[in-house]
Write a protein that binds this DNA or RNA. Structure first.
Lengths: 200, 200
DNA sequence: ATTGTTTGACCGACCGTTCAGTTTATAATT
DNA sequence: AATTATAAACTGAACGGTCGGTCAAACAAT
């Protein structure tokens, strides 16, 4: 049993390696430019092996998207839960999202690809839609907490969470395409605008 | 000369047909799924002809991106210039952007592809960056006008235009991936949030 | 006849997927 | 303990198909 458990862990580890390799390859080259050979080479296995663990290229990429979104969300959530005050929660979420230019860049690169695939592929679209809500880290609960404690003005909760999410996504894209100001400045701008909108 | 002029117009027309065909094909199938044959067929010419007018697939796609962005921007600009009051200008821009769900969908589909290409291809990136500023239609001049006439509160002009643009992009994406509320409701939400942020 | 335009067959490269077979690890048997 | 059997893990060659780009020939216009 212990052996079997061990085997399963190894298997899980292999899958994880392949998923990480996929993520990095997609971030680097873009979805359609990445070949199974690229991924296999990066993960240190053969092309045949990758299709031993994932039935198809699409399955592997789908797993990579899920992995990427789940990990990202978990990271932000941890940062948010570390503080109590609703304003600080918002600050923590934004700080977490704009923590590292290099990582944000990678995430944006991979995610923009998955968005454009999700626009036409039902499986990717559904996965995107499933993870979209609250994925900014500034969830409904935070807004509700802020309103109930009087820290936020009582703007519609839907508007507030929609606004936060949209602003983060939109500013990420601006940062990516216009190199006028620094990543750090975009972080400050994001915090400023969102808190300006939320607070009294 | 008249004949030559006529020829040139015909040539220009061919190029335009190819560009439109490219735009529609990309919106439908996605950049990497579209083949030169697809475009040629839609435009009613042969693949060879396509490459007679555009040196490469990349050149054609680049022209399509430029066409798409320029036309979109011009359309919004016309709507904005039709009214005088800064608040009405903002309303007009948003109304123009959220005018037609079908067209917005097409635009989003094509543009999301070009974004992900622009993330790695310098030519596409540069084109994106060049057209990015003021492309939301809520340009700096509108903000300045609003502030000077007292219609807007004197928030930083950079923040205000950044915010408008980001919100429009972000809400478009939300609309695309979460079908909870209608396109029309997203339009209203967009207007509400932006004007709430801009006005006193 | 010359120049410009159009075509479709063709080439070479590429890539996802399959598969027959090898290696490795575990279990069974002697 | 040594050997064999069995299944899982893994490999790389090969296949079938696609696609961007080339080109020689055909066609049209002046």
């Amino acid at each position: 049993m212990a052996a079997k458990q061990f085997i399963q862990e190894l298997e899980e580890q292999r899958r994880d390696e392949l998923i990480r390799a996929t993520y990095h390859e997609v971030a680097e080259k873009g979805y359609s430019a990445v070949t199974l050979q690229d991924i296999a080479t990066r993960a240190g296995v053969s092309k045949g092996s990758t299709l031993y663990y994932f039935a198809s290229k699409e399955d592997l990429f789908l797993a990579a998207l899920e992995w990427m979104v789940v990990h990202n969300h978990a990271r932000i959530r941890r940062a948010v839960e570390a503080v109590d005050d609703p304003v600080e929660k918002v600050r923590a979420a934004i700080a977490s999202i704009f923590a590292n230019a290099q990582e944000s860049r990678q995430f944006f690169l991979a995610y923009s690809d998955f968005v454009s695939i999700g626009a036409r592929n039902k499986r990717f679209h559904d996965l995107n839609a499933r993870f979209y809500h609250g994925c900014s880290g500034i969830d409904r609960e935070i807004i509700e907490l802020g309103v109930s404690t009087g820290a936020f003005r009582s703007v519609s909760i839907d508007d507030a969470s929609s606004m936060s999410r949209a602003l983060i996504d939109g500013l990420m894209m601006q940062w990516f395409f216009s190199s006028e100001i620094t990543f750090e400045e975009y972080r400050r701008r994001c915090e400023r605008i969102i808190l300006d909108y939320l607070t009294v």
